[in-house]
Amino acid sequence: MLRIEGLTKRYRTGDLALDKVDLEVPGGQVMALIGPSGAGKSTLIRCVNRLVEPSAGRVRLGDTEITGLSRRELRRARRRMGMIFQEFALVERLTVMENVLSGQLGHVGFWRSYLRRFPQPAVDAAYQTLERVGLADQIDKRADALSGGQRQRVGIARALLQQPEILLVDEPTASLDPKTSRQIMRLICELCAERHLAAVINIHDVQLAQLFVQRVVGLRAGQVVFDGPPSGLNPEVLTRIYGEEDWTTAATRRKGTDGGDDDALDEERMAGIV
């Protein structure tokens, strides 16, 4: 499905962000990409849709070799890859609907998009998607009037409107509180399952990743240093990815809970009030 071979990126400043990365993501698989800041996670997913030009190596999506495409062909290929951003990257002054419909820009001509005359099927799809992510009542609000979690839902809806085959997700929860983070991660993973979408999710919250994904890839200094199931993240592996630290709490914690501890804590706190 997505196949990355020998992907290398050296920035003009001389920093080697990616060093011969080989990676394969089959259709429908949700994969988390973890690693310390500066490990090359963001660069990796941006090299996939060539928002950043790779220095060497190949990226294939299905039968298309992304790295060899002309600008025009690249635009067509980008329609197949939905992207979700850390700071949501919504166009703040446009409405929720306009933001979601902008997922269709690759399919619509310039004047139609300029005049906001999107084809009816696209508008229908936008309504359905907004309903699915729980924003049916916010359609006409401006994006900057929404809360963080709502904005990320708009970002997700925009990516879905492209009818993509794969989602490239860059730190979707980094600007959100823990509860909203879980909701957003759960939503992304549910949607991937519903639509048989593959996803590459950059995430720095290891525990959150462990809760939701099927596969974890650890990146350090531009190289893949771990590739396996979430259960394989033991202290020894975490040290390999992030460096020396006392990992015992992180490694044992995930055995305990799944989604319930927020509610449990709330119950404890509320216990004395009523």
Binding site: R79, A89, L105, G106, F110, S113, L168
Partner: peptide, 27 residues
Amino acid sequence: IDANQVEAITATGASGGQVLVYGIWPQ
């Protein structure tokens, strides 16, 4: 302008003109 918004519009497969109208102009 915020480059993220431009990046997001570019990532949808929008053309240069569309990036201008959706990603830059509103900002």
